[in-house]
Amino acid sequence: MKIAVLSGKGGTGKTLLAVNLAALAQPAVYVDCDVEEPNGHLYFRPKHIVQKPVCIKIPQVNPTLCNGCRKCVEHCAFNALAYVKDNLLIFDDICHSCGLCSLLCPQKALSEIDKEIGIIQSGRADDVCIHTGILHIGQATGIPIIQNLLLEASSADALTVIDCPPGSACIVMESIKDADFCLLVTEPTLFGAHNLSMVHDLVTLFNKPFGVIINKSIPGANPAETFCKENNLPVLGKIPYDKHLSILHSNGEIAVKHSETYRALFSSLLDAVIKEVRHETAPHS
């Protein structure tokens, strides 16, 4: 069972929820797809880390074979090539690794070479497998890392918790693509409600079963909860606004390991989520 934890904005509590659910559900797999700033590993402190590079293909030109026909420049859908003064210029950051240019080149002057854009680290803490995607600084996109990461982390039996990057852009789409269920984390602010609406649109577009968790929940006005009520979004649980929980989390501690109260709180959330997943993913007869 694969559960993706996502939110429209950063700082709503994706990692708080994902880390604590994975720690409770052991055996579990925790996948950190927030490749621009992965921090889940800081909580688990995994051991026996195995590291793998993630590479993409980019074209390389052999200038002695290139006759300047410019077929590659004209057909590149991403404008990653230019031809100036008998030289082919290749822009790696714009290239989408589609391979069309090397396929088209009548002179066979273009070949594809590997370019490392990041790494995947896999390790273990107790009965949790932790997979972390790390994008190298300055690289244009982390999507190939997420594709490799999800392949690496694929597990048949253990509960897999996918900690997504914030937002609702392509990098999030890639992270939720194979998920059985999406858990939308939000907070009781107007900003929270607005961003919840955006991720709600995303999971609806992907036809994914989903549920909402309201973090930092306080009594009184709750725009996120109002949004859920008005649009019939299932709220699976709430995490109260709690300074001690926040301090524990900020210190890199997994809350469920430190207090019976938090263990009970996150257990009830995990139960609600699993119940909902079973219900939502059961074949309708």
Binding site: V73, C76, F78, N79, A80, L81, A82, Y83, V84, F91, I94
Partner: peptide
């Protein structure tokens, strides 16, 4: 013709100038 491209507009526009 680069004005409507989704990405790399500057590169294609520069190619036109060249």
């Amino acid at each position: 013709s680069a004005a409507s491209s989704t990405g790399g507009a500057g590169i294609q526009a520069a190619q036109i100038i060249v």
